[in-house]
Nucleic acid binder design. Structure first.
Lengths: 130, 130
DNA sequence: CTAAGTGCAAAGTTTTTGCATAACT
DNA sequence: AGTTATGCAAAAACTTTGCACTTAG
């Protein structure tokens, strides 16, 4: 398993830069448009590839919205956390929930499940939007 | 908002019957195939429409897998619960987590969020599959 | 009878992929 | 120079929709 070299292309830098600025979860299409707005021309397929690569490298978080779209966001914390997302403006708060992690692992263990993983997202309307 | 009457068609009955038997989360395509296997001919679009209708009526649960597919399952409990799903065989255990619900609501309230909802799924490899 | 439900195929979305070209190292 | 990355367009995969036909009530 030799590690792949990663080339620093203009496109990769541009995608990373946009992700560093965006503070809400965004779809590939939205990132693509943000790039256009900045005058950076990057093919949509390349945006997909770079977002995927960034997610694989754990540099950005990845989740699916209710419509099945994959959304990406660069989070402040590197440790495991969950998101509280405003369903109107998309504002996102990163929250820790150690008790929940423990609960999930315990429940799984109680039923004989191994290699446990979990997903937890909280949504609501934030104060500014209600 | 007058309520729509619901007609009991052969197709609707067939879809409901299949869902009553399947005990794992299944995609529209899988339900469609299960119908074929039973000798019930139902158009795929109709399967989609009926699954959607059943979910809207809260008669079946609906979630998205990691691939973005929508999966459906008729659950035993009517009350709010979560799922512990085997990623190999799909076996599903319904689990309650009142403490988690309270935690989620509290976290959201702490940040001024209203109309809070959350999604939580646990996945792992069950004892039979590991 | 009349509106809801169905089937089929076409269209829509999001995401992936093949392949020739461009460009890091 | 040698490969990895890109761009474009085509393909995939899942889901929705338009419309004529069927059928429950």
């Amino acid at each position: 398993m030799t590690e792949q070299p990663v080339r620093t292309t203009r496109q990769r830098r541009a995608v990373a830069a946009v992700m560093a600025d965006l503070d809400t979860f965004s779809s590939a299409r939205e990132v693509h448009e943000a790039l256009r707005d900045r005058g950076e021309s990057v093919g949509l397929a390349t945006v997909y590839r770079n977002l995927q690569a960034l997610a694989d490298a754990d540099e950005i978080d990845q989740l699916r919205n209710d419509d099945g779209e994959v959304l990406y966001r660069r989070c402040a914390t590197e440790q495991h956390h969950h998101h509280l997302v405003c369903r109107v403006c998309g504002r996102t708060v990163e929250v820790l929930g150690p008790a929940v992690e423990r609960w999930a692992d315990q429940v799984a263990a109680d039923h004989g499940f191994r290699d446990v993983a979990h997903t937890l997202e909280i949504s609501g309307t934030c104060d500014r939007c209600s």
